[in-house]
Design a protein around this nucleic acid. Structure first.
Lengths: 210, 210
DNA sequence: TGTACATCAGTGAACGCGCGTTCACTGATGTAC
DNA sequence: TGTACATCAGTGAACGCGCGTTCACTGATGTAC
């Protein structure tokens, strides 16, 4: 090994990252369950056995990808939360659209593996999404008009919003990005759907049971 | 072959069906991309090469499973449409819940492969779901209060409902069915979410643009 | 600064295994006369 | 009803291939003195 510059630790970290990046790239048209360890190492330019210096298994690598992807998502939300003035819905959908289109691989991975075939990865994604929904629930509680809502109803609403936006993400990823008209169309639909949900909350009677 | 009774054609049909049934059973904890042709034939009690008498490839079998699953879904909706009087939302969620819980394998397959790794299957599911949403759009157009809506807005609403109900199906499939309290909880949330959407439609201004 | 030793990321050969697909076949069922 | 031939669902041997994982190794980097 006369790789490049950096300490041994730094070079190890770099190899680990190229395993993650390569795997994500290969996952563009495949599911994790259909991706082999050998393919990932070949793509990263190391020998198959060296994989084990970085991950216990492909599922382990998958979980690392979940963490990496969810970090992006959280970071986006934190940024979005900072400049919310004006039309919240339009801004939210715009931020989400930009984020997804500039990190398609991560979001394709998240949405595909959410109900995919590797139990440990699936479970990691759903745990993270539950935390994410909980954060949105807290955000919603601060909205005028929702301040006196039951937590249950807030959570139900947050869940509906998260699921709708994830459905939007999936649709967006299937659209041909070279067709801006199609992007605009699914984007308009996403905005309308959020608007419809918000309109629903103005009519919600907290006493309504199930 | 001294199988059992029936014409040659009938016995062929029976083998085909046992390939489909066996595959669906094996897909309980795996994605289609991770299921091998040999496994399916082994489970159906035939030799691997005989597979090709029935399907061109595993993707082809997957598409047959999509058709079978979507038939169930359509049949359920047709039944539900017939006795709609009373609380439409409660009845709809009840029918859907019963249907999903008594055909878990089909619905697990549909939801998992919708964004799964086999392009042809994924595309077949999305085509079917688009038709399904179009049917719901027509149903919605007949609702009092929605009669003068634009088709675009009706489609947007139908899509939101279908996506929410599919998210419910996925959640329901992950719940331990021996915990009736948990089933009741996710079911109540599904009902509330549909109710919230319906309440939103009462406030929707058709002039609202995206 | 120089030396001796420890660490450890990456190597390369080897393994046994299940895979999809080919091919020529068998023998029960179906059909024509 | 009986015979001769065609059809075709399922068989079984064989193939080459990529897979995950084991193991003993190498040699550059890091550390102790």
């Amino acid at each position: 090994m006369t790789d490049t510059l950096g300490s041994r630790q730094e070079r190890k970290q770099r190899t680990r990252q190229s395993l993650l990046d390569g795997a994500l790239e290969l996952l563009a048209d495949r599911s994790l369950a259909a991706l082999s360890l050998r393919e990932v190492t070949r793509h990263a330019g190391i020998v198959p056995t060296a994989f084990y210096r970085h991950f216990d298994s492909m599922a382990d690598l998958g979980i690392a990808l979940v963490e990496e992807s969810m970090l992006r998502l959280r970071h986006m939300v934190r940024t979005a939360r900072r400049n919310l003035g004006g039309d919240v819905i339009t801004k939210t959908v715009a931020t989400l659209t930009d984020e997804v289109l500039s990190n398609t691989a991560h979001y394709r991975f998240l949405t595909a593996e959410r109900y995919g075939g590797v139990p440990a990865v699936r479970s990691a994604i759903n745990t993270e999404l539950r935390l994410f929904t909980a954060e949105l629930t807290v955000d919603l509680a601060r909205f005028p008009g929702l301040r006196d809502w039951h937590t249950d109803d807030l959570r139900m609403t947050a869940e509906l919003m998260v699921n709708s936006m994830l459905a939007y993400v999936m649709t967006l990823l299937d659209v041909d990005v070279r067709r801006p008209d199609q992007v605009a169309e699914v984007r308009a639909t996403a905005r309308k759907q959020l608007r419809l949900i918000m309109l629903g909350t103005t009519q919600w009677r907290p006493s309504t049971r199930g």
